[in-house]
Design a protein around this nucleic acid. Sequence first.
DNA 1: TAGATTGTTAATCGATTAACAATC
DNA 2: TAGATTGTTAATCGATTAACAATC
Lengths: 223, 223
Amino acid sequence: MRKDKVSEAVIRRLPKYYRYLMELERIGVERISSQELSKKMGIKATQIRQDLNCFGGFGQQGYGYQVKMLKKEIKDIIGLNREYRVILVGAGNIGQALANYIGFEKEGFNIVGIFDVNPKLIGNTIRSKTIMDIDTLHTFAKQNRIDLCIITTPKENAQQIADMVIGVGIKSIWNFAPVDVEARKGVFVENVHLNDSLYTLVYRINEQEGMKKRECLPAKGGE
Amino acid sequence: MRKDKVSEAVIRRLPKYYRYLMELERIGVERISSQELSKKMGIKATQIRQDLNCFGGFGQQGYGYQVKMLKKEIKDIIGLNREYRVILVGAGNIGQALANYIGFEKEGFNIVGIFDVNPKLIGNTIRSKTIMDIDTLHTFAKQNRIDLCIITTPKENAQQIADMVIGVGIKSIWNFAPVDVEARKGVFVENVHLNDSLYTLVYRINEQEGMKKRECLPAKGGE
DNA sequence: TAGATTGTTAATCGATTAACAATC
DNA sequence: TAGATTGTTAATCGATTAACAATC
């Protein structure tokens, strides 16, 4: 049965389920129990069942889950059963990489406009899409239905771009600039923060080394 | 006082603190209270104090925190007070974007080797670093001290590359391939999963729309 | 039917938040 | 000193996990 509110933690796990189910389907697995899936994914079976039951009872007692069906369900739940019209603002390193990445297109994300300020980039094409002058963004966004805006500008411009595209009615922003883009209620922002990701990794490296040197653990019994 | 174990949640917030403190220092703010910082960051003041006290008492009662000092402390805690020698495997779209991004270099991450299988890429240079044949990776990694390996290969090769670099003693992996790279204890892996990030964003878009259509909320009192 | 495995309730665990004494 | 704000303990909240009845 459906839960009244799906927690952030569950939402974050949905794409992971999708990923594993895609792979299982690809290698021809027909059914899987929460137990088996648990072992593969490294999370508890009971959590899997709990998570899935936020959206419906997709399994069958004594049998498990049909991989194909469950994958399809999760695909629908995430919203990958439709197409998305995407614009990308900032055609630098990361912008170009994302525009070139065909994985997104395969899942229904179509880049319909690429924008930049740099005159050297304007007019160039990425996968047959012309990079347009950022001054034309406002008009373009008004004239075309756009579902999602990717921001890959320097951090100084990110919020300004966000405000502008929100102003013309765009409801979701995938931000790669290293600032937290803010938006009014009803607009969805996902801040990626690659730096942060790297730093947590680096923290762990040093945490271990630090243990020895710093002796920061209050001795808690023997060991 | 230092906590015996710093939770994952706290670790994930450290780079965010660092980011905000960098900005505060840049714009010339000398001191800040947990209350003010709370407002800026959108997290509770009490959580900030709780978090910081995992590592030490950096504040002063009745005054707050010295921005410069606290930034320095967090920088040290994360481990950004030293240099890292990095190799990058997979010089495709994302690999090139990361190799070109100077932000990492500024924080002490030096790319000392770039590798690919593609003969068309091998020999090319990215920021004056030559792309080398992946067959030379094993020898290279043995002969050079390397702190971190960035994997930007297709998903099919990611685990294999990981196993190899772990085999020659590399202790941390920043993986961009859309699979969960596994590693033995003592090796740190950060799986980035850009797709997952996009999908959670997309989920939110549809969640809202879904509300109306599906009527999945059990009516809980009025409204 | 017997065996397996789900869906779901209840218990546990951990993280966030409130409250306040300590102290600058 | 009085006011401000930390550091820290205790309370709350939410997420994970265990347990088991339901059922295929």
